[in-house]
Write a protein that binds this DNA or RNA. Structure first.
Lengths: 121, 121
DNA sequence: GTAAACCTTGGAGTACGCTCCAAGGTCCAG
DNA sequence: CTGGACCTTGGAGCGTACTCCAAGGTTTAC
């Protein structure tokens, strides 16, 4: 599949796809005329990028992670270590989010209480 | 308190503090010689910035949020709306993180299973 | 009175993640 | 064979969030 169709399928611009390519993502196969080609595996990679980005990982982190996933078959120990540290990081982020959520909830409760009081005066 | 002490207390560089000031954070009081002054309230603001950043909000989002918190007393309806939408956003991020965590966990389990099999062969 | 440790400003530079553009090649339909 | 829709490259530009000067004023300690 060519870059236009690929970009449409994963929901980003062709410029963004080329940029991701420069960073190191995707198989870099080209046809004779120089056109880039993308596969279903590249779609998976693009989905991984989207997921990674949505939870706050940088492109380089996602690249390192996806390469470790690919190397997983060869180097179990390192892959497991990396995956475990990623999971720990995610757990920390979830904990952080929950703390801030609690703050916001308290503020919201306080807002509502003040409002109720004002209405009753 | 002057900028150096303040920066040390909140754990960032003085340059970063000045940058946050330019963005619109902190009370902008100065002594006669032009030195910036910071209060305990500014420490709270700096903590809010740290929390917000850690969960992926931009400085502008955090600024808007902190201003809405301050305006809360004046405009309950808008503050409540904003807080609720922030909470919803946080919930979405937590859900996203949990999805990716599950993926990573599955990958890790798979890695371990393959390893165990290889050892038994 | 001078050195060290503060503070000020403005502006340049950096890394990230795009986004846009110009100039040009390719492919296909009518 | 021409128009339109593709594709290529390189390079510029942008917003975010700093980071690092240089040049100079202030304060404190000896």
């Amino acid at each position: 599949m060519l870059i236009g169709e690929f970009a449409k399928r994963v929901g980003v611009s062709t410029d963004t796809i080329r940029f991701y390519g420069k960073v190191g993502f995707f198989s870099s196969s080209r046809s004779e005329n120089g056109y880039r080609h993308y596969t279903e595996k590249d779609i998976e990679t693009a989905d991984l990028i989207a997921s990674g980005k949505s939870i706050g990982f940088s492109l380089r982190e996602i690249l390192a992670f996806s390469q470790e996933m690919a190397d997983g078959v060869l180097d179990h120990a390192r892959a497991q270590e990396s995956l475990q540290s990623k999971i720990n990081l995610i757990d920390e982020r979830i904990a952080s989010l929950k703390r801030v959520r609690k703050l916001a909830q308290q503020q919201l409760d306080y807002c509502r209480a003040v409002e109720a009081q004002e209405l009753s005066v």
